[in-house]
């Protein structure tokens, strides 16, 4: 199955308005501290970086660590400045990056 991502952001906002953005991605966030059935360490595989760009400019980023639960839910606010694309990127330890984007109309 493809990466499962949920993003919720307003489709339109007034210029200067503070908007809330909610994001969630399905990821097991394997800590690297657990052992498998044979006692071997299960290698760490977490999303360690999340970035949000508004019309290309970085407006929010987070470094994530092994204590973050599976399927990380990140919610934050930004200011609606102009109409354009808000894009999101999650990068995990295996180097896999998942992306998503939404359009916003600012009046």
């Amino acid at each position: 199955m493809a990466a499962r991502i949920m993003v919720n952001a307003p489709a339109s906002a007034a210029k200067g308005e503070v908007i809330e953005i909610k994001t969630m991605i399905a990821h097991k966030m394997e800590t690297g501290h657990r052992m498998g059935t044979m006692g071997q360490i299960i290698p760490r595989d977490i999303i360690h970086r999340f970035e949000c760009r508004y019309d290309g400019a970085l407006v929010f980023a987070a470094d994530l660590f092994p204590a973050v639960s599976a399927n990380p839910f990140i919610t934050f606010t930004t200011v609606a400045t102009k109409s354009g694309k808000i894009s999101f990127k999650w990068i995990d330890d295996k180097g896999k990056s998942s992306t998503s984007s939404v359009k916003i109309k600012v009046t």
């Binding site: 199955m1 499962r4 949920m6 919720n8 909610k22 969630m24 399905a26 839910f73 919610t75």
Partner: peptide, 16 residues
């Protein structure tokens, strides 16, 4: 619905 992690499975199921 945007915070409920179960919705990840629901949306995956919609694709399937």
């Amino acid at each position: 619905d945007f915070a409920n992690p179960g919705m990840l499975w629901v949306s995956g199921g919609a694709d399937l």
